[in-house]
Design a protein around this nucleic acid. Structure first.
Lengths: 261, 261
DNA sequence: TGTTTTTGTCCGCTATATTGTACATATGAT
DNA sequence: ATCATATGTACAATATAGCGGACAAAAACA
């Protein structure tokens, strides 16, 4: 059923894929779970999950926590993630860019990337506004629901976009159906203009601005976004876009530096 | 040859173990490598490594980077690591503790943990001194080489310690042999006193101070350390230890908070 | 130019990892 | 007390994953 993996049905799953399915599931749940619960909720054989969980535990990829035999992501993953972050050293500059955006606009600023075939907020700086942002950091959101999504898939061909995005993700949170062709048209428009803005699909009171942060290959490796109240956003549109473009330009000079050592 | 895993010789390796061996190896190398190089350097069959690398690439665990087909740790690992960090929310308080230590002592302060059966510096705050610290963040160091190492294994029995630490890690960087029984005696002493200090084994000009940061189970989940010039360290010993204990106490109140959601 | 090394792919064999099933225990409901 | 559910372990069957080795292209070298 999953459009990306799970080729055929009734086949045996590879241990590695199952393992990372477990890890992703724990990340999504954001809490420690018992092996039994994991097996039930991801629809995997219990014996397999127990075997894999024990393997991952002995490698430090998972850890016992929360008692009752519950497990969650382990320290080893933290170390590996830190190594990634260190290599593609975007964190420091990213925080600076968000800081700058927050200062200049007083709005919520986000740094977003793709996580597989989903959109995710990697870092966020809350604005001075009194309302809360609907997406939390690290949560996976369907690409079509977001302004950034238009930019993050713009390097793909129309067909590749359709293959890449799970079909059910075109069902918007309100239940409406976003015609894929409409989405693609917006992608191409965003690509031409180097930005995308719209009234948020996820809620009814925000306006979203997104500009690309281009990586080594020239396409949008990430985006910088502002999430604003609708009237403020529309009133300050040009200024906000200028701020975003300025901040994005500051991020683009050295997306992946060679390593110092 | 690896004392910890690789039970018997001539056996087939499990894919999952090989996969994480690859990931750890890349982390240790801290650079993108070709699959061929990886296979050669970790002593694994080339065909297996190619298969695994491709699997990991398609899962976002590895990424192409650096050209020439080289691969390095992928974005997915960053997300998983961020989820871990978010769950066991030690980062913020940890930075505050290091900041405080740096202010009070002007020396290099480190937050250290075990990574498997090695010691590693998780976060560091450089002091005002003009010399550099010998261990970089994220590098794996044999446990017996470090002051913190005495504290981090103190919850294990003598026999478990010997099983846990690879025998060759008792060979010090200078080539001398540290008798395991000597090490264990120092572990027990550190356990009793709740601290360990010594002239660094790794270099000839620093003195190291370490105190435990106790986790849920009551044993040292991490350590806070100071690395100082020898004469300064010895002159300020009592004050430095007070600072460390104070900072460690500040970290211990909520090692793993329940999650908010 | 010929030779060696590096790099990547392909394929068949077989050791084994995944899985269904059965079993055992604890917990909770009635 | 009885039944049902949740949780973890043990084990055998077989689909397959890991491995060795063959092959080929490209790069390095002589």
């Amino acid at each position: 059923m999953d459009a990306v993996q799970d080729e055929a049905a009734g086949k045996r799953a590879r241990g590695l894929d199952r393992a990372f399915e477990i890890l992703d599931f724990l990340r999504q749940k954001r809490q420690a779970l018992k092996p039994n619960e994991i097996a039930a909720q991801i629809g995997a054989p219990r014996s397999s999950v127990y075997e894999l969980v024990n393997l991952l535990l002995s490698n430090g990829i998972l850890e016992f926590t929360g008692g009752e035999g519950r497990v969650y992501l382990g320290r080893k993953l933290y170390f590996l993630g830190a190594a990634y972050e260190n290599h593609f050293d975007f964190t420091r500059e990213c925080e600076a860019a968000l800081e700058q955006l927050a200062d200049e606009t007083r709005e919520t600023a986000q740094f977003c990337m793709l996580d597989g075939n989903k959109y995710t907020v990697v870092r966020m700086r809350e604005g001075a506004r009194p309302f809360r942002i609907s997406t939390d950091i690290g949560q996976s959101v369907p690409i079509p629901w977001t302004a950034s999504g238009r930019l993050l898939v713009a390097h793909l061909s129309d067909q590749d976009i359709l293959n890449f995005i799970p079909p059910q993700d075109f069902r918007l949170p309100g239940g409406e159906w976003l015609e894929p062709q409409t989405f693609i048209a917006e992608v191409r428009q965003a690509e031409r203009e180097g930005l995308f803005t719209f009234n948020s699909i996820v809620d009814s009171f925000t306006h979203c601005f997104a500009v690309p942060v281009r990586g080594e290959e020239g396409h949008a490796a990430a985006t910088l976004c502002l999430v604003t109240p609708r009237d403020d956003g529309i009133a300050n549109r040009d200024r906000y876009l200028d701020c975003l473009k300025k901040a994005a330009a500051g991020l683009e000079h050295a997306p992946a530096r060679p390593r110092r050592n």
